[in-house]
């Protein structure tokens, strides 16, 4: 029983980090109405940026956020402005342009393989890691410290993004664009600038997720693919476009993955996750917390 609770807690912690990786995806979908297939790769880029920041400057892993977040925001902003915007302009009257999915898939391939080309296929992890293998003991339970921090950062980020969208002027503009892009344009909002910013925010969140992962996760060029598919599952489970949906969806997946192996081989949990995903798609495509067809 004690192992069960320990697994469940670790699952919740890891799940909230999954939720954080999916948060950027859900925000980009909410506003741009586009599933960003490159999101896992953006996470991977975030991990590499964090890794090199920590390795070169010797900062504490979590302090690297001050560099990772602006770098990733800029990266996402430029990516949207240069690569994806032309498609939006070409397909103005399509609500959910499929072409953009294809272009983000192209971005995924380019980013992953560029990284492979530059940094090679080897697995890396940060040296002199102050958090390496640290555990908190509660009774007989062992809780991983970097995962606990990851969970805290995930919740703070989600709350921060929620506050930003609800309370600031830019946040209101983003919400307006997500509701009705034409009406937003009519009231003087530059739709494409909002898209750029949203994509930047989504990418920055992927960067934050990368920072929370590097203390206990290996870094390699295709790491994004693992989180990519998981991210899709989480956002559909939680409801595309819903912020708390992403975090809760992540926790559900994390729980299945950590508690499942007590009852079956761990590879079967993967099949269960896919099964759950399909079930949600068929029964309630808007997800657990998504508003039907919209944010």
């Amino acid at each position: 029983m004690i192992y069960f609770i320990e697994d469940a807690i670790n699952g919740i912690l890891m799940g909230s980090i999954y939720g954080l990786t999916a948060l950027g995806l859900t925000i980009i979908f909410g506003v741009l109405k586009v599933v960003n297939f490159a999101h896992g790769s953006l996470l991977m880029v975030g991990m590499y940026v964090a890794f090199w920041t920590v390795s070169l400057t010797g900062l504490h892993p979590y302090l690297s956020l001050i560099i990772v977040v602006p770098v990733m925001y800029g990266f996402g902003y430029c990516l949207q402005a240069v690569v994806i915007k032309p498609i939006f302009k070409a397909e103005k009257n399509v609500r959910e342009p499929l072409t953009v999915i294809i272009v983000t898939t192209g971005v995924w391939y380019i980013l992953d393989n560029m990284t492979l080309l530059i940094f090679g296929p080897q697995y890396r992890s940060i040296q002199d890691n102050p958090l390496k293998g640290k555990m908190i003991e509660i009774g007989e339970m062992m809780i991983s410290v970097p995962k606990l921090w990851g969970c805290i950062i995930a919740i703070v980020t989600a709350v921060g993004v929620y506050w930003f969208l609800q309370k600031t002027r830019t946040g209101r503009a983003i919400r307006a664009t997500s509701l009705d892009r034409d009406a937003a344009s009519l009231s003087g909002i530059n739709q494409y600038r909002i898209y750029n910013m949203t994509f930047g925010i989504g990418t920055a969140i992927a960067g934050i997720a990368g920072v929370t992962l590097i203390p206990f996760y290996n870094i390699f060029p295709t790491v994004g693919v693992l989180f990519d598919i998981k991210g899709f599952i989480i956002v559909v489970l939680g409801g595309l476009g819903s912020i708390h949906g992403a975090i809760i969806g992540g926790i559900i997946i994390g729980l299945i993955e950590s508690v499942g192996p007590q009852f079956m081989t761990s590879t079967w949990t993967e099949a269960i996750v896919y099964g759950l995903f399909l079930l949600v798609l068929f029964v309630k495509p808007s997800g657990l917390f998504g508003v039907k067809y919209d944010w």
């Binding site: 690569v83 072409t99 272009v103 391939y109």
Partner: peptide, 21 residues
């Protein structure tokens, strides 16, 4: 250059989608 062809795939895909949908 491992994965070089996939970079070309990606670039060609994006260019085709933008200029020759």
């Amino acid at each position: 250059l491992p994965g070089f062809h996939l970079i070309i795939y990606g670039v060609v895909l994006i260019l085709v989608m933008i200029y020759q949908p």
